[in-house]
């Protein structure tokens, strides 16, 4: 396996930033579309978004070297607007406070929350744009890298966006069950959401793999690593079966046996989506194959 300069900390960051921004989008969607019966889910999503993206950003900072030991160097991170990391720093710096403020407003936490509640719709609009930017940016970050042909495709941000939305919905559903286990029945309403987003993710993933096979020798080498190479057990078992197929099937059952599915199966499906989302990032980062230069 080729050695990558980036490891698990970056994988965790890509996943957490995606899941956090997805949870924010899920919360906004619930609050705007069905504030009456999906209130718990909106609350859970809003409460999870800020902390998840923050933990992800901490992982990103921990991966730095000189920038970690001499933190004042991080001020330079916004120097180069042609670097996606500079854009990422700007987007994250804007999104994290908005996400916390939105959680405070929606849950009416402290006087800040009660004050911010007056501007709830504004927070939702600005926050959604920033959340979508965060999710897409994690894909663009690695898509603009021409040192790894496998990543260098416009499908990358689309794939990460799709995964961010499905993992975000899973986070919000788990959070809703933690906040109030009685909502487990109403969670069946969101099974359809899972079906749609997991299908989109599966289609984009399939296109990504198929197109990589013909795009270049190096991209094909990476794709082969996932389909039949060293990473194939993780790709097929964790990413495809546990992360997409199993939650998809459980969501179908959940949708038709409205509210009757056992609570552990509902939560289990969501945990599988999260496991799949994390593993998707891991196999993409660890299958990086550099161009054949000699």
């Amino acid at each position: 396996m080729p050695e990558s300069a980036w490891g698990w900390l970056i994988v965790a960051y890509l996943f957490l930033a995606g899941a956090g921004s997805g949870a924010f989008l899920a919360a906004v969607a619930c609050d705007l579309l069905a504030p009456d019966w999906s209130r718990t889910l909106a609350r859970a999503g809003s409460l999870a978004a800020g902390p998840l993206v923050t933990i992800g950003t901490v992982c990103l900072v921990l991966d730095l070297e000189a920038g970690l030991w001499q933190p004042w160097r991080q001020i330079y991170l916004v120097s180069n607007l042609s670097s996606m990391i500079t854009w990422g720093v700007i987007i994250l710096s804007a999104f994290i406070p908005v996400a916390f403020l939105y959680a405070a407003a929606l849950n009416e936490i402290t006087f800040v929350g009660r004050f911010a509640k007056k501007y709830l719709l504004h927070l939702e609009i600005v926050g959604s744009v920033l959340a979508a930017s965060t999710a897409a940016y994690t894909g663009v970050l690695i898509a603009v890298v021409n040192g790894v042909p496998f990543w260098n495709t416009p499908l990358m941000p689309v794939l990460f966006m799709a995964s961010a939305i499905s993992t975000g919905l899973a986070v919000a559903m788990i959070g809703a069950a933690i906040l109030d286990i009685n909502t487990i029945k109403t969670l069946s309403n969101f099974a359809l959401g899972h079906l749609i987003f997991l299908s989109v993710e599966a289609v984009v993933l399939m296109m990504f793999i198929f197109m990589s096979l013909t795009r270049s020798v190096e991209a094909a080498a990476s794709a082969d690593m996932l389909i039949s190479g060293v990473l194939s057990p993780y790709f097929w078992v964790i990413v495809v079966v546990l992360g997409i197929v199993l939650p998809f099937l459980l969501s179908i059952v959940e949708y038709y046996k409205y509210g009757e599915l056992h609570k552990y199966l509902v939560i289990g499906a969501d945990l599988c989506v999260l496991l799949g989302g994390m593993s998707l990032r891991a196999v993409i980062i660890f299958s990086a194959t550099p161009p054949q230069v000699i």
């Binding site: 300069a5 070297e65 920038g67 160097r73 990391i85 021409n146 550099p290």
Partner: peptide, 20 residues
Amino acid sequence: ERCVGCKYCIEACPYKVRTV
């Protein structure tokens, strides 16, 4: 004095000639 060690340049270099 400016490098923070984010290693983005290592990923971007097609010749893989940069080291930490």
